[in-house]
Design a protein around this nucleic acid. Structure first.
Length: 656
RNA sequence: GCGCCCUUAGCUCAGUUGGAUAGAGCGUCUGGCUACGAACCAGAAGGUCGGGAGUUCGAAUCUCUCAGGGCGCACCA
């Protein structure tokens, strides 16, 4: 509703400027006044027009206010300050629409969107860094779906890379395990934890003797080639760890539709198809001399001309990115180009598919296969893609985008978004708590990077367990009357709320310096704070003998427009106005690929509600009409909080 | 060396398209539970927005420059 009023206001201004001054502004800036008393929307456009119209800003603002006429949904425009125009909405009308949950239809772009996130190497347990990726990605999926878009969620699995090879080396050469022994281990509860330690040990083993790196190389080649015992072991291990990752993410209500794997990109020869097209288009060229002699290379993104001339141009050696090595093997970026051509339906090849994992709710997650099931959903061939990948890979991502552009697929390139975010590191104190000895230099740093290779980091399942245990302590003391199962469920909801909120409250470019003290906080700007606001609202209805959902649904029948006009004073109105902004905020989050704005919205709404809750004892209200109005306020805010939290993947327990 | 990002209160961070007096949370200090549950609320203290110059009616926000920090820049992924 809020964004519709904004659009209508912009339209009215635009047409007034057109017919009165015959001017057109590229964009009408509309913002919120610093205080609700001043109105709902503020327009600073008179300042901008002053020079063009050769009039004082105040004078222009006066003319606009006087001449624009009535705008549906608005009570009036008024001049403020040195030339601001503040617009006041018809509060009763907006409140009535909001209680009815009126959501005027919006134009939803057609075309499927593919969001890729998580993409954890299947060789060790997931850690906090992976959690940030998955929570950002999953929340973005929820934002898109809230906005009415069709979304496929993919989790790319690099099951044939060096990281998997390292664990295979660990099993075969360090532990000398048989296939049967490894199989037995994969059936152990937290097999990924076992691999976590083994991966670190293998990495150490390479450092002990550089000769050991030969073993790694041989293992990697065997895995890439496939059809041998080493590759079969790698498959066994990677699949088992992958299952663990799906279980871990499912604890946070994160699900995937499809798991494309590198093994299929290799075995179904995606690269061959891409290679032909890349050579034909001149994106790739053969280097005949210099350090890249014998390689197929392309221009590195961000260097030289925007649109490279096919073929002939000279690209300086340092601006070259090797795609095909002189021994004929293709590197990671090459495989990624082929994979992204597939995403946009530009490769002329497809995966085979089989069902891999069934979520407790019955939903199936599919995986790529060389030979699959005849009946399967259609993946790929999408209109837009978002890749949730950390900022360190921005250059590689740009290179893939430029390859698509060079192939003549400019539209695909324009709809390719690298959803870039910064890493999660650990504070020196947190690292020390985990038992790592720190150098003097490390101690002075504000954060220390996690390293799977060193086995240094906070595992996702451990963090969740710690959060649940911490919530459990609180729930146990607050609600001894509840059953063990109930207390467990509530603790889990609180833990997930705290974790998801924590990962979403920071904007993407901010490095999160992880610390248990902050992450375990349930007070202040946290998920549980918002959950608690909803619980309080629910309690009002329960104690009052109302059904919260039902009351929200027909609140418009309880409160007349006259009552709204009478009772909507500034302080309560601020709460209504914030509640009206959920869809607006969702749009902002999508347009800027920044879910943190939604977290801020949730917190602001919860905070305003808590103030309201404290100031107005609703059930004690003697005036029946006023009581109904206060209840409507609680019902609408509760609904918008639940709705916004759901987009963040956070549910609310009945009590806490 | 080149490229990208960052520097805002004691700490951790917001500040979306340049706009009205720069905001939160935590921490510190003062108050508030005979409850629609205090995982809460009210109040106080705390800032030359890294330094400098420019553009603009107006700059935390845009440009340049300097300083400090991070991350990329493999025939790894």
């Amino acid at each position: 509703m809020y964004r519709h009023l904004e659009r209508r206001l912009a339209q009215a201004i635009r047409s007034f400027l057109q017919r009165t001054y015959e001017v057109e502004l590229p964009k009408i800036v509309i913002e919120q006044p610093p205080k609700v008393e001043l109105g709902e929307y503020a327009l600073p456009l008179a300042f901008e027009l002053a020079k063009r119209l050769r009039k004082a800003p105040r004078k222009i603002a006066e003319e606009i206010v006087a001449g624009i006429g009535p705008i549906e949904g608005f009570s009036k425009l008024e001049l403020a300050g040195a030339g601001y125009i503040n617009a006041r909405v018809d509060r009763a009308a907006l409140a009535t629409a909001l209680t009815r949950d009126a959501r005027p239809p919006v134009e939803v772009p057609t075309g499927k969107i593919l969001v890729e996130h998580s993409s954890i190497n299947p060789n060790k347990a997931a850690h906090v860094g992976h959690l940030r990726n998955a929570i950002l990605g999953d929340t973005f999926v929820r934002l898109l779906r809230f906005a009415g878009r069709e979304v496929d969620v993919q989790n790319y699995i690099d099951n044939t890379g060096v990281q998997v090879a390292d664990v295979v080396v660990g099993f075969l050469h360090l532990e000398k395990k048989s296939r049967a022994e490894i199989e037995a281990l994969t059936r152990q509860p937290r097999f990924d934890y076992y691999c976590w330690d083994l991966y670190a040990r293998a990495s150490q083993w390479y450092e002990q003797d550089k000769q050991n790196l030969q073993t790694r190389l041989q293992t990697l080649h065997a895995i890439e080639e496939g059809g041998n015992e080493t590759a079969a072991l790698a498959e066994l291990i990677a699949v088992a760890v992958l299952r663990r990752h799906l279980e871990t993410m499912d604890r946070l209500d994160i699900e995937y539709d499809f798991l494309p794997r590198e093994s299929e990109i290799l075995h179904l020869h995606f690269w061959d198809a891409a290679f032909t097209k890349l050579k034909e288009s001149g994106v790739l060229f053969f280097e005949e001399s210099g350090k890249n002699k014998g390689c197929w290379v392309m221009r590195r993104a961000g260097t030289g001309a925007e649109i490279p001339e096919p073929g002939q141009e000279q690209v300086a050696e340092e601006d070259q990115k090797v795609i095909v090595r002189s021994n004929g093997t293709v590197g990671y970026v090459g495989k990624d180009i082929a994979y992204h051509m597939w995403k946009f339906g530009l490769l002329g090849k497809d995966f085979a598919y089989r069902k891999f994992y069934r979520y407790p709710n019955g939903k199936d997650c599919w995986i790529s296969a060389s030979a699959g099931e005849p009946e399967h959903p259609h993946f790929g061939d999408v209109a837009e893609i978002y890749n949730v990948i950390d900022a360190r890979q921005s250059e590689a991502q740009s290179t893939v985008i430029e390859a698509l552009r060079g192939l003549g697929h400019g539209e695909a390139a324009d709809h390719y978004t690298h959803f870039s975010y910064e890493m999660v590191a650990l504070t020196p104190r947190c690292a020390a708590e985990l038992g790592y000895t720190l150098s003097e230099e490390d101690k002075s740093r504000s954060y220390i990077e996690v390293s799977g290779r060193k086995g240094f980091g906070v595992k996702a399942d451990d963090l969740l367990d710690t959060l649940i245990a911490s919530a459990r302590k609180e729930v146990d003391t607050r609600h001894p009357e509840l059953s063990d199962v109930e207390r467990g469920e509530i603790s889990t909801q609180i833990a997930i709320g705290a974790l998801r909120y924590f990962m979403l409250k920071y904007t993407k470019p901010s490095v999160i310096a992880f610390d248990f003290k902050d992450a375990l906080s349930f007070e202040g700007e946290t998920g549980p704070y918002a959950q608690y606001a909803v619980v309080r609202a629910t309690n009002i209805f329960r104690k009052g003998g109302y059904d919260a959902e039902k009351f929200a649904q027909d609140a418009a029948n309880h409160v007349s427009a006259q009552d709204f006009a009478k009772y909507l004073a500034d302080d309560i109105w601020e709460l209504w106005l914030a509640a009206a902004q959920t869809s607006y905020l969702v749009d902002q989050c999508i347009a800027t690929t920044e879910p943190a704005y939604l977290a801020k919205h949730v917190f602001q709404l919860a905070q305003l509600f808590n103030t309201f809750y404290h100031r107005y004892p609703i059930l004690a209200e003697a005036d029946e009409a006023r009581k109904k109005f206060l209840l409507a306020t609680a019902a609408v805010v509760r609904r918008e909080l639940l709705r916004s939290l759901e987009v963040m993947g956070i549910t609310v327990p009945p009590v806490m």
